[in-house]
Design a protein around this nucleic acid. Structure first.
Lengths: 162, 162
DNA sequence: TGTTAATCGTTGCAAGTGAAACGAATTTTC
DNA sequence: GAAAATTCGTTTCACTTGCAACGATTAACA
């Protein structure tokens, strides 16, 4: 007996992890080789680029990065002159983060490359296949959400969050 | 002008990364909470479990881990008595790694949990959807392979490897 | 209003990771 | 057969990451 028939290379979490690592690594060339950005910096920059002012907390919630990662990424991007920080008047705990003109310029220069990388990945996919992929990934996210909180049958006055 | 219409949350590399991170994190509970394994240790254990003897190099090639990670994982698993190391007679550079009875016991105890985690993820998927998912992920891998080496038109006596 | 609790962003710290370097062993080449 | 080049596994080192703690500020509550 040499163990059961478990094959790692056919195990969905493994396949996802390897694929994701490879994609992330290749994409990172787009923003690291030329601009020296790390992945957190990339995410923060492109996220801040589309909204007005936002806090560290909001970025943290939106971009799947730990608070310390966001904080450090923001600090580095500010130091590079691509982001501007200021304390919120209404609440002095909050930091208002905003993209600068220089940041927007970099953003506009990088995004096309990122998009064409994505396009190259999906080059051979039909429209339906792209929709299927999108849909299946969403379904997996849903399964994770359900898995995360096995909800032990809540009482009538249940809560929407938690 | 507040930047172009780039939406990170619809960007495939980002979606893949977030999904993969979440899946990996949840799966890791299966092997870390009870056995204290890290992801490299989990991968090495389940990979070594199915074959006879193998080298660090072979694991490195098979399991998408850096050589140092494999080396450390093997060392830790050996220290825990789950793997056995010995130098190869035919080539003293190589290390022969083999699972022990204790390792096999742990393996057999963990695998069902890992499989039922995967099953829970795919619970709501029809057979066709599972096949589609598998197929689409493979297609992405292919796209990455093609992207990795844009192959600058090789000479007639081309090489199979590189 | 004054005290406690909660929230925000940052920093410290321990653990993990990847790239290069290293000694040991083998293969290649002349 | 000796020298150079390659391969193997480990170690070192710089860097990143996640978690917990912290000071500062605001909210809750009595």
């Amino acid at each position: 007996m040499t163990s059961s028939g478990f094959n790692l290379s056919e195990f969905l979490p493994y396949k996802l992890s390897v694929l994701s690592s490879r994609v992330t690594k290749m994409l990172s060339k787009v923003y690291s080789e030329e601009y020296g950005f790390s992945t957190p910096e990339w995410r923060v920059l492109v996220h801040v680029a589309r909204r007005e002012k936002m806090s560290v907390r909001e970025i943290h919630d939106s971009v799947y990065l730990e608070k310390p990662s966001v904080s450090r990424a923001v600090a580095k991007l500010e130091q590079a002159g691509l982001l501007a920080k200021s304390t919120c008047d209404a609440d002095h705990r909050l930091v208002e983060i905003e993209i600068t003109d220089a940041g927007l310029k970099v953003f506009n220069a990088i995004v096309p490359d990122a998009l064409s990388f994505e396009a190259a990945l999906l080059e051979a996919f039909t429209l339906k296949e792209r929709q299927d992929l999108h849909h299946l990934l969403l379904r997996l996210q849903d399964a994770l959400d359900r898995q995360a909180e096995p909800v032990v049958q809540q009482s009538p006055k249940s809560r929407a969050d938690t």
